[in-house]
Amino acid sequence: MSAVSASSQPILDVRSVSKRFGGVEALKGVSLQLHPGEVVALAGDNGAGKSTLTKMISGVYAADGGEIRLDGKPVSFATPEAARREGIETIYQDLALADNLSIGANIFLGREPMRRAFGFLPVLDRRAMAVAAKETMATLDFHVDRLDAPVGRFSGGQRQAVAIGRAIYWNARVILMDEPTAALGVPEQRKVISLIKMLKDQGRGVIFISHNLQDIFAVSDRIIVLLRGSLAGERRIQDTNHDEVVKLMIGG
């Protein structure tokens, strides 16, 4: 089924997974492979099963059938935290950032480093958080002067970078992005596209859901189109064009 993908061992190998919600079959045996340094776009109309598929990869839903392999080993995640521990991070559309906290505090939210003040009193290690934030954001070519500024002061694309920074700090190897460019203006969309390219250059695998064909063609290696819960088609980006993808999406 995935004859078009490269031959190296995939990081993520989704094998014919299915999911049913009551009487609705949301996914009917869909397969997907993701290799290191590869960007796969997930396209399809509303209700095609894109979100269901990513939520199964990220541990939100359990698969009813099929299996998911990570580095060749079958895995099953009970919770998103379990998936995250294995290096699968999701960047949600709303970014899930605490706007009133600094970049460092957001990166470490829920697992803050502590130090001992006066040798006995445990306190937040803000310096360690700031240093990690600065280094992590530098790998995304994001150079921060004011590390104490709350992320709410940053623009949409910059906040997207912070969310990505949080994922890569925790060694995400597979990054799932849900409509990363949907809420942004055009210059900001370009920045996010360049961020995705950087993740690719760093050897991470990226799966991103998008409706925007321009973005898909700008950054992905492969495109997977879903239609009503089934695979409508999988193409290498250089072998296809807008028209064909649209036809796949609408089932023409």
């Binding site: 994001f142 940053f154 970078a161 360049s194």
Partner: peptide
Amino acid sequence: SSKVLVPR
């Protein structure tokens, strides 16, 4: 190479 993102 290029500064992709610089905070406001």
